[in-house]
Every structure is written in C-alpha cells, then in structure tokens.
Nucleic acid binder design. Structure first.
Length: 483
DNA sequence: TGGGAGAGCAGTAAAGTTCT
DNA sequence: AGAACTTTACTGCTCTCCCA
C-alpha cells in the first residue's frame, strides 16, 4: 500500500518551530589515507557528535574503521598518500532524534565520505530517479491513444511529420543538440550542456569548446567534440570554455566527474573482459566509450545513466530517445506546458515534469512518442498562442492560427492569473500574519500562562482568515464583473 | 528498531522578464 | 536604472509511513 501523502502545507506549530530554529552545527574533520589498498578513516578534530545521547563520542585521533573493507580501484589509487581530507558537518536539530537515529546518521555520513573518495563521479547519496512502469496518476485517463493520434495528425499538418530518423546524423559542431549522436558519452554530455539554458547559449558553449579542445580524430566519438582533451584538461579550463552556457561551474564539475568516472570504470571493465579471455571490440579501445550501454534493456540503461551526478530523468530520457532510439517521452518545458493545456495531466495536481513524463510514457503509444515529443517542441517554440509568454488578445494572438486550439484549456489566462495570484498572495499574507502573531504571543507571555492564551488565539485566527478571504473574493467578484 | 520508499520543499546558478 | 521575480533541471534534506 502506498504511504499516506503529506499535506501540501504543513503549518503545524511543531514543524514550524523545528524548521525555524537554527540548528547547532557540530563539525568533524576526517582524513582518509590510502595505504596498501584499504581506506582508513581518521578523525583529526572532533566534537561530541552525539552529545547528550549517552553514546560514546569519537575521541580525537581515534581511528574509525570503514563499515566494510573498502578496496580502492587501481585506476583511482594515488601513487602516494594524497590529501583526501574531507570536511563534513553534522547538524543537531532542535528536535533531537533517538540515540539510534544519531548512530544511523553518523554511519550514513561515513559511508558517504567513503563513496565520494572511491567513486568521485558517483555517490551513494544521490537520489537516483527510478524507472516507472505505472503512471503516478493511474486514475487520470488522458491521453488516450486516439487523443495522441489526433494531436499528431493536426500538428504534423502544420510542422510536417517528425518520425524517428532511420540513420544517425553526423555530429553537429555548432549546437549542443539533445543527444542525436552516435557516441553515447558525446550525446550524454552535450545534453547536459544544453540543460538549464537556452539553445543559443548551449550552442555558444559548444562552439567555444570546439575552438579550445578541438575535434576527436579517433574513438567512437570521432568527428565530434574532443572529450578526451576535456578529461585531460583542468576544470578551470572547462569552466572557461562553457561559461557562456549558463551555470557553467556546476556543469564543468559534473562533466569532469562523469569523464573521470567513465575512464576508471572502463579500465576495470576492460581488465575484467581480458581476464575472462574475451576480445575487446572496436569501441572498447576508446577509454570514454559508453557504447556498451546500448546493449542493455531500456530500464537498465536508464538506471546506468542516472547514476551520474547532474543526470536526471529528463536528460537520461533524451539520450535514450535520440541516441539509443528507444521509445521514451522526455518532458521539457514546451512538452510540459502543452501536456498541461491538453489536459493530459490532472488539473488539480501540481505541475511536475517528472510525473508528466512517466504518466505520458505509460499512456502514449510507443510509435507516437518520438513524433509527439518533436511536434510539441517545435509547436511550443513556433506557435505564438502556445508559447510560454503568450498574451491572450494581443495582435500577435489574433494573427496566430493554432491547429489544436479547440483541444486546449489554457488555465493561465491573464485575467485568471491576476485573480489567482491575488488570492494566492492574500492567503500567503494571512498565513504569515497567523505565524507572526503566534510567535510574538509565544515570545512575550510566560511559559506557564502561554498554553491557554495561545490556544485561544489560534482558535480565533481561522475565522479572521476566513473573513479576510471572503472580503478578497468579494473584491475579486467586483473586479471580474467589471472586465 | 532499522531500512527503504515516497513526498514536499529549499536551494543552486544564470539569463531573461517584469515591476517600481 | 535597478530591483525583484521567474524559469530551468537537478540535488539534498526532513518527515512520515510501512514492513521485516
């Protein structure tokens, strides 16, 4: 049975206070030294991390053994003892958990440190997106196969049919693209480059990268970006190369991490293949090759891709659809908007691109997924009425003819938006006032008297809130009727 | 009691847009 | 003109519930 959902806004006093109270930070420094092939953790400076719990605190200079014998992969093993010190911080919240909970937390952090050192590109703590076989909104019927077919038919009449390509086009060097490349690592990293930014900015980044790193002349990524040079170069150089593409520092770190992780994993994989007497194929001679993932089933390949930091469901789905040519339905901003307006997502649920992707994935027939994604993308960009910043009633709006107009319910009509935002801001303001009033009462009245008086005030406030909302809605009625 | 899963939410960075 | 807000995909945290 699925766990009960939490209420959307948790304003219970206990939660509120726990959240607003500044946590007391306690820090410890752990030195991880690599000697032989095992990791030893050493606390150099520590405070009583588990104060007040009765648990024996870790004393200075006391060795902490890893939870299991951790072997450093040969590819990652530094030649000499390297500074692998990791600064960690533990927080003691205002509502301390049980003794066991603290031990659990401490162990979790130790495992995290261990993982960070062993696998720089992958961490155990990353919340990995999961492959879904069922819809997150099973009761929501739309889109039916007929609805999908109708939309494809109408949009294809305007933009032309967008079937999956039969052959992979050669890599483009003036745009990031969304994974339409033969080489998996190239597709993955280009998709990462194009995320969180406009297409134009991503293209600028790619052009500058070509200038700085050049083009690969060998390997499975031949004729595309020279990712080996990126791997060999510094992170600062990469930051400089992609600084026109938006959030370049995060992307540079992610790209470097992914590249070093792929190289080290491939070393292990090739060594294993050779030890088993198997022959390496052509792609396996490229240390950056991820071509072996193409042999996996789609859910397994998806799981492999989202292991990397910076790769989420959308990026992985793009790579799987464009590069692996698997039938997925990545949801970007245009796809999410049109799906919402078409009523393919439940109107009473908050917009969630990830859920939209899995809901549509389970509802849209396989042969229409690629077409629909491409048509939504083009239509969302080219149709004024379906653009994100459309202005209903404007001259451009009147001049635009949208072939799916009769199917859409744009819940974000300007007048409605004004009304909705007014109500939202009023509710927000009223809630803030309730919180402030509660806090000031709690602060000014003594602990012994506070109980009855606070309860009295809290009981009185909802009616005040209702009154203010009634007034707001009356004002809205007047405003709407005058339009 | 501990582990796992699901959900909500805050935060991140940079560019673009809107408001004052 | 400058401040404030929005957008994008993602990470990481807390909380709650279920199950063994």
């Amino acid at each position: 049975m699925a766990p009960k959902r939490r209420t959307a806004i948790d304003t219970s006093p206990a939660t509120k206070r726990a959240k607003t109270t500044a946590p007391a930070r306690r820090s410890a420094r752990i030195i991880a030294s690599t000697q032989s092939s095992t990791l030893d953790f050493k606390v150099v400076r520590s405070t009583d991390l588990i104060a007040g719990t009765g648990v024996k605190p870790v004393s200075d200079d006391e060795d902490i053994k890893p939870t299991s014998s951790a072997t450093v992969p040969s590819a990652n093993a530094p030649a000499t003892q390297v500074d692998l010190s990791v600064e960690i911080e533990m927080e003691e919240t205002a509502t301390p958990r049980s003794k066991a909970g603290k031990i659990k937390k401490e162990r979790k952090i130790r495992v995290k440190v261990e993982e960070e050192i062993l696998h720089p590109g992958l961490t155990a703590t990353k919340k990995r997106p999961k492959w879904h076989t069922t819809s997150p909104w099973p009761d929501h019927e739309s889109p039916s196969a007929a609805q999908c077919g109708e939309v494809v038919h109408l949009l294809a009449a305007l933009h032309g049919d967008k079937p999956p390509p039969k052959a992979m086009p050669p890599p483009e060097m003036d745009r990031a693209g969304c994974g339409e490349n033969h080489a998996v690592h190239d597709a993955l990293l280009r998709t990462l480059l194009s995320a969180n930014t406009s297409e134009g900015n991503a293209a600028k980044a790619v052009k500058k990268m070509v200038k700085i790193y050049g083009v690969a002349e060998t390997g499975c990524g031949k004729h595309s970006l020279n990712w080996q040079a990126v791997h060999d170069g510094s992170v600062e150089k990469l930051e400089d190369a992609i600084n026109q593409g938006g959030i370049y520092k995060i992307k540079a770190a992610c790209i470097k991490n992914i590249l070093s992780c792929v190289v080290s994993e491939n070393k292990e994989r090739y060594a294993k293949l050779l030890s088993e007497g198997k022959e390496l194929d052509e792609d396996d001679h490229d240390p950056l090759s991820l071509q072996h993932l193409k042999q996996l089933m789609t859910p397994e390949a998806f799981a492999e891709l989202v292991r990397y930091h910076g790769i989420g469901s959308k990026t992985a789905a793009c790579v799987l659809m464009f590069c692996f040519q698997r039938a997925l339905f990545p949801v970007d901003t245009h796809v999410a908007r049109l799906s919402h307006w078409l009523g393919w997502t439940p109107p009473d649920k908050p917009k969630d691109a990830d859920k939209t992707m899995w809901h549509c994935h389970t509802k849209i027939p396989e042969h229409l997924r690629y077409r629909l994604h491409q048509l939504f993308y083009f239509h969302g960009q080219e149709c004024y009425r379906c653009a994100a910043d459309t202005k209903i009633g404007s001259p451009a709006w009147k001049a635009c003819v949208c072939p799916i107009e009769h199917l859409l319910n744009r819940r974000k009509e300007p007048e409605m938006l004004k009304g909705q935002s007014l109500i939202t801001s009023m509710i927000k303001k009223a809630k803030t006032e309730v919180v402030e009033a509660e806090d000031s009462i709690a602060a000014s009245i003594s602990e012994t008297v506070v109980r009855s008086e606070v309860l009295h005030e809290v009981d009185a406030e909802p009616s005040a809130l209702n009154g203010s909302l009634e007034q707001s809605s009356k004002g809205m009625d007047i405003g709407m009727s005058s339009l």
